[in-house]
Write a protein that binds this DNA or RNA. Structure first.
Length: 490
RNA sequence: CGGGGUGUAGCGCAGCCCGGUUAGCGCACCUGCUUUGGGAGCAGGGGGUCCCAAGUUCGAAUCUUGGUACCCCGACCA
């Protein structure tokens, strides 16, 4: 094999890296922790963007853009916020370079030191709320529902392609409301948007929940999240939606005059998903042969490989296939006829399997004569020969089937890897196996921290539609009303 | 920031211990011919600051010292 992918069993991390690099999604960049997103990877992100952006607009939001650089002083205005982000900020201190007077190369000009250092945004709450102060005076200015697509930088100690890069692309919604209830509703609405999107497009089931206080966003009153399970049983936070209370309004003094003519602080939310979703997509579905992409996000949904001897045969095949290609395109299906004569069919098969193209059609002269075509689906690695008549309908149906089959497979995997633990002994044993644990917790940070210290497991979330039941905390034995989800996480 | 590993052609590696022709192999790339139903064959060809710096030496990819980058594991985090 030309491009060997490490098997999942041998080395899961290496498998993931091989997949990303060899399928052409991304490259390492010269800067630690940063990555180049290549056209194929960016194509997936663009599809995610398009679907999400549509949903944001449908729920009343508009896009805007706020600057990359934030005055250092802004970060310190909200105490919990600075506490959470201070350790991972990239700082701009100078604005000019010059030739090194002592030799070759270039140095930072010490004369060009900034009066106030600038922070490269790790998130934009501060710069946005500084602006909202000027935009909001009356209840008539509310709600303010703004989203931005942007890049942010968090100087992480350890990075991983897509899952945790120093710079990443995301969207961040920042809304302002007149009442707490309205803001909470917005927080929950956007969590739902995320959950539905991930389940429908990424074919990945998620658990909707609230974070424990320990895991809350820096500056939030309540953090909602969606948690997904990867193939190795680890949890991945796929999106977050925060109810920020009046924390940022108070920090940036954003008040409005209500209907009764009284000044009140504005209620806020923020919510985001990032290019990490591309990582989730890869890790959730792919196999040892390469990527497995759900049709709704695959940059290329159908590839057609002609098998022929000589130009004359190829022309015959082209003539037969062209109407199909036209029809598929008319249905909004992305399709490519790979008639590159410098590569042989076997090579192409392997290549498109590695790149996760959901459907591959192959037609040789045998099929041509018999009016058939070979159809291969990537998700189940099945192939068969079907009649060429009505093939467009067959493909459209098959794409739907692949999308739903991938979801079902992921759902079955996840559900079979969530186990209940009712004693500490049971918990310790189960946490060594892949998957999530559903267990009672006494609600205290001390217990959560102790469990994390002993097992590396954290509370991923307190599920939203959680059945209430009497129980005892797995660790302390104190009374508990509901189970929470524990897992080791990315 | 601690532990481990690796820097030699676009990618993957050998050579280093024991210094010595023109630094080698596989894949990829280019040209030609034959091929094309699961990663083609033959022939010819191009491509190298051997991570950087200093040192030892007649001579360094190889030895010494210092630096640096990246990957993996952990602590931190979306």
């Amino acid at each position: 094999m030309a491009k060997e992918i490490t098997s999942r069993k041998e080395d899961y991390s290496q498998w993931y890296n091989d997949l990303v690099l060899k399928s052409g999604l991304a490259d390492y960049s010269p800067v630690r922790g940063c990555m180049v997103i290549k056209p194929y990877g960016f194509g997936i992100w663009e599809k995610m963007q398009a679907a999400l952006d549509k949903r944001f607009k449908e729920t009343g939001h508009v896009n805007a853009y706020f600057p990359l650089l934030i005055p250092k002083s802004f970060l310190s205005k909200e105490a919990a916020h600075v506490e959470g982000f201070a350790k991972e900020c990239a700082v701009v201190t100078h604005y000019r370079l010059k030739n090194d007077p002592n030799g070759k190369g270039i140095i930072v000009d010490p004369e060009a030191k900034l009066e106030e250092e600038l922070i490269i945004r790790p998130t934009s709450e501060t710069i946005i709320w500084n602006q909202y102060k000027n935009w909001i005076q009356s209840y008539r200015d509310l709600p303010l529902l703004i989203n931005q697509w942007a890049n942010v930088v968090r100087w992480e100690m350890r990075t991983r392609l897509f899952l945790r890069t120093a710079e990443f692309l995301w969207q961040e919604g920042h809304t302002a409301h007149a009442t707490a209830q309205e803001a909470v509703e917005e927080t929950e609405r956007m969590l739902d948007v995320y959950a539905n999107f991930v389940e429908e497009y990424l074919a990945l089931p998620v658990i909707r929940g609230r974070k424990s206080p320990n895991e809350r966003f820096a500056g939030a009153v309540e953090t909602y999240c969606i948690e997904a399970m990867m193939q190795d049983g680890l949890a991945l936070q796929a999106g977050t939606s925060h109810f920020l209370g009046q924390n940022f309004a108070k920090a940036f003094d954003v008040q409005f005059l209500n209907k009764e003519g009284k000044q009140e602080y504005v209620w806020a939310t923020s919510w985001g998903v990032s290019t990490r979703l591309v990582g989730a997509l890869i890790m959730a579905h792919s196999d040892d042969e390469g990527l497995v992409l759900p049709p709704k996000l695959a940059p290329l949904q159908v590839v057609i490989v002609p098998i022929h001897k000589g130009e004359e045969d190829l022309n015959k095949l082209r003539d037969k296939l062209l109407p199909l290609i036209t029809e598929l395109k008319a249905r909004g299906i992305t399709v490519k006829l790979d008639d590159d004569d410098t590569k042989r069919p076997g090579f192409k098969f392997a290549e498109y399997e590695m790149r996760g193209v959901p459907i591959r059609l192959a037609m040789g002269m045998r099929d041509y004569e018999a009016n058939t075509v070979e159809v291969a689906r990537r998700d189940k690695k099945e192939k068969g020969t079907v009649s060429f008549d009505g093939i467009a309908d067959h493909i459209a149906a098959l794409l739907d089937d692949i999308q739903s089959n991938m979801y079902k497979t992921a759902l079955a995997f996840r559900d079979s890897h969530i186990r209940k633990a009712d004693t500490w002994e049971e918990f310790q044993k189960l946490i060594e196996e892949p998957g999530f644990i559903s267990a009672h917790w006494d609600g205290t940070s001390e217990t959560e921290e102790k469990i994390k210290e002993l097992t590396k497991a954290t509370i991923r979330c307190i599920p939203l539609d959680n059945p209430q039941e009497d129980g005892k905390c797995i660790f302390s034995g104190a009374a508990s009303k509901e189970r929470v989800i524990f897992a080791r996480a990315y």
